[in-house]
Design a protein around this nucleic acid. Structure first.
Lengths: 210, 210
DNA sequence: CCTATTATATACAATATTGTCAATAATGAG
DNA sequence: CTCATTATTGACAATATTGTATATAATAGG
Protein backbone atom coordinates (compact mmCIF):
# COMPACT_ATOMS: atom_id res chain seq x y z
CA UNK A 1 0.00 0.00 0.00
CA UNK A 2 2.99 2.26 0.43
CA UNK A 3 3.70 1.77 -3.24
CA UNK A 4 0.18 2.66 -4.18
CA UNK A 5 0.31 5.72 -1.98
CA UNK A 6 3.40 6.97 -3.73
CA UNK A 7 2.30 6.06 -7.20
CA UNK A 8 -1.29 7.27 -7.35
CA UNK A 9 -1.06 9.78 -4.56
CA UNK A 10 -4.57 11.11 -4.72
CA UNK A 11 -4.24 12.38 -8.24
CA UNK A 12 -7.83 12.78 -9.24
CA UNK A 13 -8.38 14.19 -12.66
CA UNK A 14 -11.26 16.58 -12.62
CA UNK A 15 -12.83 16.89 -16.05
CA UNK A 16 -15.49 19.26 -17.22
CA UNK A 17 -18.90 17.58 -17.19
CA UNK A 18 -18.98 17.66 -20.99
CA UNK A 19 -15.60 16.00 -21.28
CA UNK A 20 -16.49 13.36 -18.72
CA UNK A 21 -19.74 12.58 -20.51
CA UNK A 22 -17.97 12.33 -23.82
CA UNK A 23 -15.33 9.96 -22.44
CA UNK A 24 -17.95 7.74 -20.87
CA UNK A 25 -20.16 7.68 -23.93
CA UNK A 26 -17.29 6.73 -26.20
CA UNK A 27 -16.16 3.98 -23.86
CA UNK A 28 -19.71 2.67 -23.67
CA UNK A 29 -20.08 2.78 -27.44
CA UNK A 30 -17.02 0.68 -28.16
CA UNK A 31 -17.41 -1.52 -25.13
CA UNK A 32 -21.04 -2.31 -25.90
CA UNK A 33 -19.93 -4.24 -28.97
CA UNK A 34 -20.30 -7.43 -26.99
CA UNK A 35 -23.90 -7.75 -26.00
CA UNK A 36 -25.75 -4.62 -26.97
CA UNK A 37 -27.55 -2.44 -24.44
CA UNK A 38 -28.62 -5.37 -22.29
CA UNK A 39 -24.99 -6.38 -21.95
CA UNK A 40 -23.78 -2.97 -20.87
CA UNK A 41 -22.08 -3.04 -17.46
CA UNK A 42 -21.27 0.10 -15.53
CA UNK A 43 -18.07 -1.34 -14.12
CA UNK A 44 -16.82 -2.29 -17.57
CA UNK A 45 -17.61 1.07 -19.08
CA UNK A 46 -16.10 2.88 -16.12
CA UNK A 47 -12.86 0.97 -16.42
CA UNK A 48 -12.64 1.66 -20.15
CA UNK A 49 -13.32 5.35 -19.60
CA UNK A 50 -10.81 5.59 -16.77
CA UNK A 51 -13.31 6.59 -14.12
CA UNK A 52 -15.10 4.87 -11.28
CA UNK A 53 -18.61 3.62 -11.82
CA UNK A 54 -20.31 6.07 -9.45
CA UNK A 55 -18.97 8.81 -11.70
CA UNK A 56 -21.11 7.43 -14.50
CA UNK A 57 -24.14 7.49 -12.24
CA UNK A 58 -23.29 11.03 -11.24
CA UNK A 59 -23.33 12.19 -14.86
CA UNK A 60 -26.15 10.10 -16.25
CA UNK A 61 -28.33 9.46 -13.24
CA UNK A 62 -28.70 5.77 -13.85
CA UNK A 63 -27.71 2.97 -16.17
CA UNK A 64 -30.87 3.60 -18.12
CA UNK A 65 -29.91 7.27 -18.42
CA UNK A 66 -26.60 6.26 -19.97
CA UNK A 67 -28.34 4.05 -22.50
CA UNK A 68 -30.73 6.82 -23.44
CA UNK A 69 -27.82 9.20 -23.92
CA UNK A 70 -26.18 6.60 -26.16
CA UNK A 71 -29.34 6.30 -28.21
CA UNK A 72 -29.60 10.03 -28.60
CA UNK A 73 -26.01 10.00 -29.80
CA UNK A 74 -26.80 7.33 -32.36
CA UNK A 75 -29.75 9.26 -33.76
CA UNK A 76 -27.55 12.32 -34.00
CA UNK A 77 -24.82 10.38 -35.78
CA UNK A 78 -27.30 9.01 -38.26
CA UNK A 79 -28.63 12.47 -38.97
CA UNK A 80 -25.13 13.88 -39.35
CA UNK A 81 -24.06 11.15 -41.73
CA UNK A 82 -27.09 11.57 -43.92
CA UNK A 83 -26.85 15.34 -44.04
CA UNK A 84 -23.17 15.00 -44.82
CA UNK A 85 -23.89 12.66 -47.71
CA UNK A 86 -26.57 14.93 -49.05
CA UNK A 87 -24.49 18.05 -48.79
CA UNK A 88 -21.33 16.65 -50.34
CA UNK A 89 -21.98 15.65 -53.93
CA UNK A 90 -25.49 14.85 -55.03
CA UNK A 91 -24.52 14.77 -58.71
CA UNK A 92 -25.67 11.22 -59.18
CA UNK A 93 -27.14 8.57 -56.97
CA UNK A 94 -24.19 6.29 -57.60
CA UNK A 95 -21.38 8.24 -56.02
CA UNK A 96 -23.47 8.90 -52.92
CA UNK A 97 -23.49 5.20 -52.17
CA UNK A 98 -19.91 4.68 -51.08
CA UNK A 99 -19.98 7.08 -48.11
CA UNK A 100 -23.31 5.64 -47.00
CA UNK A 101 -21.95 2.12 -46.96
CA UNK A 102 -18.82 3.33 -45.22
CA UNK A 103 -20.78 5.08 -42.49
CA UNK A 104 -23.01 2.12 -41.75
CA UNK A 105 -20.05 -0.21 -41.74
CA UNK A 106 -18.25 2.11 -39.35
CA UNK A 107 -20.37 1.05 -36.41
CA UNK A 108 -23.51 2.99 -37.24
CA UNK A 109 -25.43 -0.13 -38.26
CA UNK A 110 -24.47 -1.87 -35.06
CA UNK A 111 -25.63 1.12 -33.03
CA UNK A 112 -28.90 1.21 -34.91
CA UNK A 113 -29.48 -2.40 -33.89
CA UNK A 114 -28.88 -1.39 -30.28
CA UNK A 115 -31.23 1.51 -30.74
CA UNK A 116 -33.94 -0.84 -31.92
CA UNK A 117 -33.26 -3.19 -29.04
CA UNK A 118 -33.58 -0.47 -26.42
CA UNK A 119 -37.15 0.17 -27.39
CA UNK A 120 -38.09 3.44 -28.96
CA UNK A 121 -37.48 5.47 -25.84
CA UNK A 122 -35.62 8.13 -27.75
CA UNK A 123 -37.44 8.33 -31.01
CA UNK A 124 -40.88 7.68 -29.72
CA UNK A 125 -43.21 6.31 -32.35
CA UNK A 126 -41.75 8.79 -34.80
CA UNK A 127 -39.27 6.36 -36.26
CA UNK A 128 -36.32 7.61 -38.24
CA UNK A 129 -37.65 10.75 -39.89
CA UNK A 130 -34.23 11.96 -40.99
CA UNK A 131 -34.49 9.63 -43.94
CA UNK A 132 -37.34 11.76 -45.22
CA UNK A 133 -34.94 14.55 -46.03
CA UNK A 134 -32.94 12.09 -48.05
CA UNK A 135 -36.02 11.07 -49.98
CA UNK A 136 -36.89 14.67 -50.80
CA UNK A 137 -33.36 15.50 -51.88
CA UNK A 138 -33.06 12.48 -54.13
CA UNK A 139 -36.48 13.18 -55.55
CA UNK A 140 -35.52 16.71 -56.47
CA UNK A 141 -32.41 15.34 -58.14
CA UNK A 142 -34.39 12.80 -60.13
CA UNK A 143 -36.87 15.40 -61.32
CA UNK A 144 -34.03 17.63 -62.38
CA UNK A 145 -32.38 14.81 -64.31
CA UNK A 146 -35.66 13.70 -65.84
CA UNK A 147 -36.16 17.07 -67.43
CA UNK A 148 -39.30 19.22 -67.57
CA UNK A 149 -42.70 17.65 -68.00
CA UNK A 150 -41.60 14.17 -66.95
CA UNK A 151 -43.35 12.80 -63.90
CA UNK A 152 -41.28 10.95 -61.28
CA UNK A 153 -43.12 8.92 -58.66
CA UNK A 154 -42.04 9.91 -55.16
CA UNK A 155 -43.09 6.50 -53.81
CA UNK A 156 -40.51 5.12 -56.19
CA UNK A 157 -37.88 7.45 -54.80
CA UNK A 158 -38.79 6.51 -51.28
CA UNK A 159 -38.42 2.83 -52.10
CA UNK A 160 -34.97 3.48 -53.56
CA UNK A 161 -33.86 5.26 -50.40
CA UNK A 162 -35.23 2.47 -48.25
CA UNK A 163 -33.54 -0.20 -50.33
CA UNK A 164 -30.24 1.66 -50.19
CA UNK A 165 -30.55 1.90 -46.43
CA UNK A 166 -31.33 -1.80 -46.17
CA UNK A 167 -28.41 -2.66 -48.44
CA UNK A 168 -25.89 -0.64 -46.45
CA UNK A 169 -27.35 -1.76 -43.14
CA UNK A 170 -27.58 -5.43 -44.08
CA UNK A 171 -24.13 -5.41 -45.59
CA UNK A 172 -22.68 -3.97 -42.41
CA UNK A 173 -24.37 -6.54 -40.18
CA UNK A 174 -24.37 -9.66 -42.33
CA UNK A 175 -21.93 -8.93 -45.13
CA UNK A 176 -18.85 -10.46 -43.62
CA UNK A 177 -20.64 -13.70 -42.80
CA UNK A 178 -22.06 -14.00 -46.29
CA UNK A 179 -18.82 -13.28 -48.06
CA UNK A 180 -16.40 -15.35 -45.97
CA UNK A 181 -13.42 -13.72 -47.60
CA UNK A 182 -10.12 -15.48 -46.79
CA UNK A 183 -8.13 -12.29 -46.21
CA UNK A 184 -8.94 -8.76 -45.06
CA UNK A 185 -7.78 -7.42 -48.42
CA UNK A 186 -10.14 -9.78 -50.19
CA UNK A 187 -12.93 -8.73 -47.84
CA UNK A 188 -12.45 -5.08 -48.74
CA UNK A 189 -12.32 -5.93 -52.43
CA UNK A 190 -15.60 -7.83 -52.19
CA UNK A 191 -17.16 -4.99 -50.22
CA UNK A 192 -16.30 -2.51 -52.94
CA UNK A 193 -17.39 -4.94 -55.60
CA UNK A 194 -20.83 -5.17 -54.04
CA UNK A 195 -21.10 -1.41 -53.61
CA UNK A 196 -20.23 -0.84 -57.24
CA UNK A 197 -22.63 -3.53 -58.35
CA UNK A 198 -25.39 -1.95 -56.32
CA UNK A 199 -24.64 1.47 -57.76
CA UNK A 200 -24.87 0.08 -61.26
CA UNK A 201 -28.03 -1.73 -60.24
CA UNK A 202 -29.62 1.55 -59.21
CA UNK A 203 -28.54 3.21 -62.44
CA UNK A 204 -29.97 0.44 -64.57
CA UNK A 205 -33.26 0.80 -62.78
CA UNK A 206 -33.42 4.58 -62.74
CA UNK A 207 -32.39 4.98 -66.34
CA UNK A 208 -35.35 2.86 -67.29
CA UNK A 209 -37.81 4.33 -64.83
CA UNK A 210 -36.73 7.93 -65.22
CA UNK B 1 -49.29 -22.50 3.33
CA UNK B 2 -52.20 -24.84 3.84
CA UNK B 3 -53.74 -23.41 0.70
CA UNK B 4 -50.60 -23.95 -1.26
CA UNK B 5 -50.34 -27.51 -0.03
CA UNK B 6 -53.83 -28.26 -1.24
CA UNK B 7 -53.53 -26.40 -4.48
CA UNK B 8 -50.16 -27.47 -5.87
CA UNK B 9 -49.86 -30.73 -3.98
CA UNK B 10 -46.63 -32.02 -5.45
CA UNK B 11 -47.89 -32.17 -8.99
CA UNK B 12 -44.68 -32.24 -10.92
CA UNK B 13 -45.06 -32.69 -14.64
CA UNK B 14 -42.35 -34.89 -15.96
CA UNK B 15 -41.68 -34.22 -19.62
CA UNK B 16 -39.48 -36.10 -22.02
CA UNK B 17 -36.11 -34.39 -22.34
CA UNK B 18 -36.95 -33.42 -25.92
CA UNK B 19 -40.25 -31.85 -24.93
CA UNK B 20 -38.64 -29.97 -22.05
CA UNK B 21 -35.91 -28.63 -24.27
CA UNK B 22 -38.42 -27.56 -26.87
CA UNK B 23 -40.57 -25.73 -24.31
CA UNK B 24 -37.56 -23.94 -22.87
CA UNK B 25 -36.14 -22.99 -26.25
CA UNK B 26 -39.44 -21.56 -27.41
CA UNK B 27 -39.89 -19.58 -24.23
CA UNK B 28 -36.35 -18.25 -24.55
CA UNK B 29 -36.89 -17.33 -28.19
CA UNK B 30 -39.96 -15.22 -27.56
CA UNK B 31 -38.78 -13.89 -24.22
CA UNK B 32 -35.43 -12.82 -25.62
CA UNK B 33 -37.16 -10.18 -27.71
CA UNK B 34 -36.24 -7.64 -25.09
CA UNK B 35 -32.50 -7.50 -24.91
CA UNK B 36 -31.03 -10.18 -27.10
CA UNK B 37 -28.75 -12.87 -25.75
CA UNK B 38 -27.11 -10.59 -23.21
CA UNK B 39 -30.53 -9.84 -21.76
CA UNK B 40 -31.55 -13.45 -21.38
CA UNK B 41 -32.35 -14.37 -17.77
CA UNK B 42 -32.78 -17.94 -16.62
CA UNK B 43 -35.50 -17.05 -14.15
CA UNK B 44 -37.51 -15.23 -16.80
CA UNK B 45 -37.22 -18.03 -19.33
CA UNK B 46 -38.04 -20.62 -16.69
CA UNK B 47 -41.18 -18.82 -15.66
CA UNK B 48 -42.32 -18.46 -19.28
CA UNK B 49 -41.65 -22.13 -19.94
CA UNK B 50 -43.42 -23.22 -16.78
CA UNK B 51 -40.39 -24.82 -15.16
CA UNK B 52 -37.90 -23.88 -12.48
CA UNK B 53 -34.59 -22.43 -13.50
CA UNK B 54 -32.46 -25.40 -12.36
CA UNK B 55 -34.39 -27.44 -14.90
CA UNK B 56 -32.94 -25.27 -17.63
CA UNK B 57 -29.46 -25.84 -16.28
CA UNK B 58 -30.16 -29.55 -16.11
CA UNK B 59 -31.04 -29.69 -19.80
CA UNK B 60 -28.57 -27.20 -21.21
CA UNK B 61 -25.71 -27.33 -18.74
CA UNK B 62 -25.37 -23.61 -18.41
CA UNK B 63 -26.81 -20.32 -19.56
CA UNK B 64 -24.22 -20.30 -22.31
CA UNK B 65 -25.36 -23.76 -23.35
CA UNK B 66 -28.91 -22.50 -23.73
CA UNK B 67 -27.74 -19.62 -25.90
CA UNK B 68 -25.74 -21.97 -28.10
CA UNK B 69 -28.77 -24.21 -28.50
CA UNK B 70 -30.81 -21.16 -29.49
CA UNK B 71 -28.23 -20.21 -32.08
CA UNK B 72 -28.19 -23.70 -33.51
CA UNK B 73 -31.96 -23.45 -33.77
CA UNK B 74 -31.70 -20.16 -35.63
CA UNK B 75 -29.25 -21.56 -38.15
CA UNK B 76 -31.55 -24.52 -38.68
CA UNK B 77 -34.54 -22.24 -39.18
CA UNK B 78 -32.66 -20.18 -41.71
CA UNK B 79 -31.66 -23.27 -43.62
CA UNK B 80 -35.21 -24.63 -43.52
CA UNK B 81 -36.70 -21.39 -44.76
CA UNK B 82 -34.28 -21.12 -47.64
CA UNK B 83 -34.69 -24.74 -48.70
CA UNK B 84 -38.42 -24.28 -48.45
CA UNK B 85 -38.33 -21.24 -50.71
CA UNK B 86 -36.10 -22.98 -53.21
CA UNK B 87 -38.19 -26.13 -53.31
CA UNK B 88 -41.55 -24.44 -53.63
CA UNK B 89 -41.70 -22.49 -56.87
CA UNK B 90 -38.52 -21.30 -58.50
CA UNK B 91 -40.28 -20.30 -61.70
CA UNK B 92 -39.17 -16.71 -61.46
CA UNK B 93 -37.16 -14.71 -59.01
CA UNK B 94 -40.08 -12.43 -58.32
CA UNK B 95 -42.54 -14.83 -56.71
CA UNK B 96 -39.81 -16.21 -54.47
CA UNK B 97 -39.49 -12.86 -52.79
CA UNK B 98 -42.70 -12.76 -50.78
CA UNK B 99 -42.01 -15.89 -48.69
CA UNK B 100 -38.47 -14.69 -48.04
CA UNK B 101 -39.67 -11.36 -46.72
CA UNK B 102 -42.33 -13.12 -44.69
CA UNK B 103 -39.85 -15.48 -43.08
CA UNK B 104 -37.41 -12.76 -42.10
CA UNK B 105 -40.21 -10.63 -40.78
CA UNK B 106 -41.46 -13.56 -38.73
CA UNK B 107 -38.68 -13.23 -36.19
CA UNK B 108 -35.90 -14.79 -38.22
CA UNK B 109 -34.16 -11.47 -38.80
CA UNK B 110 -34.27 -10.67 -35.11
CA UNK B 111 -32.77 -14.07 -34.30
CA UNK B 112 -30.04 -13.54 -36.86
CA UNK B 113 -29.12 -10.34 -35.06
CA UNK B 114 -28.87 -12.29 -31.82
CA UNK B 115 -26.81 -14.89 -33.59
CA UNK B 116 -24.37 -12.21 -34.71
CA UNK B 117 -24.27 -10.76 -31.21
CA UNK B 118 -23.41 -14.08 -29.58
CA UNK B 119 -20.22 -14.32 -31.52
CA UNK B 120 -19.83 -17.01 -34.11
CA UNK B 121 -19.73 -19.83 -31.61
CA UNK B 122 -22.10 -21.92 -33.66
CA UNK B 123 -21.13 -21.16 -37.20
CA UNK B 124 -17.44 -20.83 -36.66
CA UNK B 125 -15.74 -18.74 -39.32
CA UNK B 126 -17.83 -20.52 -41.91
CA UNK B 127 -20.47 -17.82 -42.02
CA UNK B 128 -23.84 -18.61 -43.48
CA UNK B 129 -23.05 -21.11 -46.20
CA UNK B 130 -26.67 -22.09 -46.73
CA UNK B 131 -27.04 -19.03 -48.91
CA UNK B 132 -24.66 -20.63 -51.38
CA UNK B 133 -27.30 -23.16 -52.32
CA UNK B 134 -29.61 -20.31 -53.07
CA UNK B 135 -27.05 -18.70 -55.32
CA UNK B 136 -26.54 -21.90 -57.27
CA UNK B 137 -30.27 -22.51 -57.67
CA UNK B 138 -30.97 -19.00 -58.87
CA UNK B 139 -28.01 -19.17 -61.19
CA UNK B 140 -29.32 -22.34 -62.79
CA UNK B 141 -32.66 -20.65 -63.24
CA UNK B 142 -31.12 -17.60 -64.85
CA UNK B 143 -29.11 -19.68 -67.26
CA UNK B 144 -32.20 -21.63 -68.20
CA UNK B 145 -34.14 -18.44 -68.82
CA UNK B 146 -31.30 -16.84 -70.73
CA UNK B 147 -31.31 -19.64 -73.25
CA UNK B 148 -28.38 -21.56 -74.69
CA UNK B 149 -25.14 -19.84 -75.49
CA UNK B 150 -25.79 -16.82 -73.29
CA UNK B 151 -23.31 -16.28 -70.46
CA UNK B 152 -24.64 -15.30 -67.06
CA UNK B 153 -22.17 -14.02 -64.49
CA UNK B 154 -22.39 -15.98 -61.25
CA UNK B 155 -20.92 -13.05 -59.31
CA UNK B 156 -23.94 -11.13 -60.51
CA UNK B 157 -26.27 -13.83 -59.24
CA UNK B 158 -24.49 -13.89 -55.91
CA UNK B 159 -24.92 -10.14 -55.58
CA UNK B 160 -28.63 -10.46 -56.31
CA UNK B 161 -29.04 -13.06 -53.58
CA UNK B 162 -27.11 -10.92 -51.14
CA UNK B 163 -29.13 -7.84 -51.95
CA UNK B 164 -32.37 -9.77 -51.54
CA UNK B 165 -31.18 -11.03 -48.18
CA UNK B 166 -30.25 -7.52 -47.11
CA UNK B 167 -33.58 -6.15 -48.29
CA UNK B 168 -35.63 -8.73 -46.39
CA UNK B 169 -33.39 -8.50 -43.35
CA UNK B 170 -33.27 -4.72 -43.27
CA UNK B 171 -36.97 -4.44 -43.88
CA UNK B 172 -37.68 -6.75 -40.96
CA UNK B 173 -35.43 -4.84 -38.58
CA UNK B 174 -35.84 -1.23 -39.73
CA UNK B 175 -38.89 -1.27 -41.97
CA UNK B 176 -41.47 -0.32 -39.41
CA UNK B 177 -39.43 2.64 -38.19
CA UNK B 178 -38.88 3.92 -41.70
CA UNK B 179 -42.48 3.62 -42.79
CA UNK B 180 -44.25 4.92 -39.70
CA UNK B 181 -47.61 3.71 -40.95
CA UNK B 182 -50.55 5.08 -38.92
CA UNK B 183 -52.45 1.78 -38.78
CA UNK B 184 -51.49 -1.91 -38.86
CA UNK B 185 -53.46 -2.32 -42.07
CA UNK B 186 -51.53 0.52 -43.66
CA UNK B 187 -48.30 -1.02 -42.43
CA UNK B 188 -49.09 -4.31 -44.14
CA UNK B 189 -50.07 -2.50 -47.31
CA UNK B 190 -46.77 -0.63 -47.36
CA UNK B 191 -44.87 -3.82 -46.67
CA UNK B 192 -46.42 -5.50 -49.68
CA UNK B 193 -45.92 -2.41 -51.74
CA UNK B 194 -42.21 -2.48 -51.04
CA UNK B 195 -41.97 -6.20 -51.75
CA UNK B 196 -43.67 -5.77 -55.09
CA UNK B 197 -41.52 -2.80 -55.93
CA UNK B 198 -38.40 -4.80 -55.12
CA UNK B 199 -39.59 -7.69 -57.27
CA UNK B 200 -40.11 -5.34 -60.17
CA UNK B 201 -36.75 -3.78 -59.43
CA UNK B 202 -35.07 -7.16 -59.79
CA UNK B 203 -36.92 -7.86 -62.99
CA UNK B 204 -35.93 -4.57 -64.55
CA UNK B 205 -32.33 -5.33 -63.77
CA UNK B 206 -32.31 -8.95 -64.82
CA UNK B 207 -34.18 -8.35 -68.04
CA UNK B 208 -31.43 -5.98 -69.03
CA UNK B 209 -28.53 -8.02 -67.76
CA UNK B 210 -29.86 -11.41 -68.80
C1' DC C 1 -5.76 33.54 -0.40
C1' DC C 2 -10.35 31.76 0.92
C1' DT C 3 -14.52 29.59 0.03
C1' DA C 4 -18.41 27.48 -2.35
C1' DT C 5 -19.23 24.23 -5.73
C1' DT C 6 -19.01 19.84 -7.57
C1' DA C 7 -16.58 16.07 -9.94
C1' DT C 8 -14.55 12.03 -8.16
C1' DA C 9 -13.66 7.99 -5.43
C1' DT C 10 -14.04 4.44 -1.66
C1' DA C 11 -16.98 1.82 1.08
C1' DC C 12 -21.18 -0.06 1.57
C1' DA C 13 -26.14 -1.71 0.89
C1' DA C 14 -29.54 -4.18 -1.55
C1' DT C 15 -30.76 -6.96 -4.90
C1' DA C 16 -30.20 -9.93 -9.00
C1' DT C 17 -28.27 -13.82 -11.16
C1' DT C 18 -25.96 -18.06 -12.14
C1' DG C 19 -24.89 -22.31 -10.57
C1' DT C 20 -24.79 -26.35 -6.92
C1' DC C 21 -26.84 -29.79 -3.96
C1' DA C 22 -29.80 -32.86 -2.08
C1' DA C 23 -34.41 -34.52 -1.88
C1' DT C 24 -38.35 -36.13 -4.38
C1' DA C 25 -41.51 -37.90 -7.57
C1' DA C 26 -42.71 -39.59 -12.21
C1' DT C 27 -41.67 -43.11 -15.49
C1' DG C 28 -40.19 -47.34 -17.65
C1' DA C 29 -38.11 -51.93 -17.33
C1' DG C 30 -37.86 -56.24 -15.10
C1' DC D 1 -45.31 -54.65 -8.07
C1' DT D 2 -40.41 -53.23 -7.35
C1' DC D 3 -36.71 -50.77 -8.49
C1' DA D 4 -33.44 -48.07 -11.04
C1' DT D 5 -33.30 -43.96 -13.58
C1' DT D 6 -33.73 -39.22 -14.03
C1' DA D 7 -36.52 -35.03 -14.63
C1' DT D 8 -37.84 -31.75 -11.34
C1' DT D 9 -37.55 -28.61 -7.60
C1' DG D 10 -36.64 -25.76 -3.22
C1' DA D 11 -32.87 -24.17 -0.64
C1' DC D 12 -28.59 -22.42 -0.67
C1' DA D 13 -23.93 -20.50 -2.08
C1' DA D 14 -21.16 -17.33 -4.51
C1' DT D 15 -20.72 -13.67 -7.15
C1' DA D 16 -22.19 -9.73 -10.01
C1' DT D 17 -24.43 -5.48 -10.48
C1' DT D 18 -26.79 -1.25 -9.65
C1' DG D 19 -27.31 2.37 -6.75
C1' DT D 20 -26.33 5.22 -2.20
C1' DA D 21 -23.72 7.64 1.29
C1' DT D 22 -19.88 9.99 2.62
C1' DA D 23 -15.47 11.99 2.24
C1' DT D 24 -12.23 14.46 -0.53
C1' DA D 25 -9.91 17.14 -3.81
C1' DA D 26 -9.88 20.09 -7.93
C1' DT D 27 -11.60 24.29 -9.79
C1' DA D 28 -13.75 28.87 -10.20
C1' DG D 29 -15.06 33.18 -8.27
C1' DG D 30 -14.71 36.44 -4.68
Amino acid sequence: MAIKDLASKNKRIRRTPEEARRLILEAAETGMAAGGPAGLRLETVAKAAGVSHPTILHHFGSREGLIQALNLRTVEQLRTVLIDVLGSSPQSSENAITPIFAAYRNGLAQRMVWLMQSGSLVMGPAGLPMLDEMVLALHALRERLAGPGVQVDIADTRAIVHLTTFAAFGDAILGKRLRRAPTPAEEIAQQQSFENWFGEFLNVYMSRKG
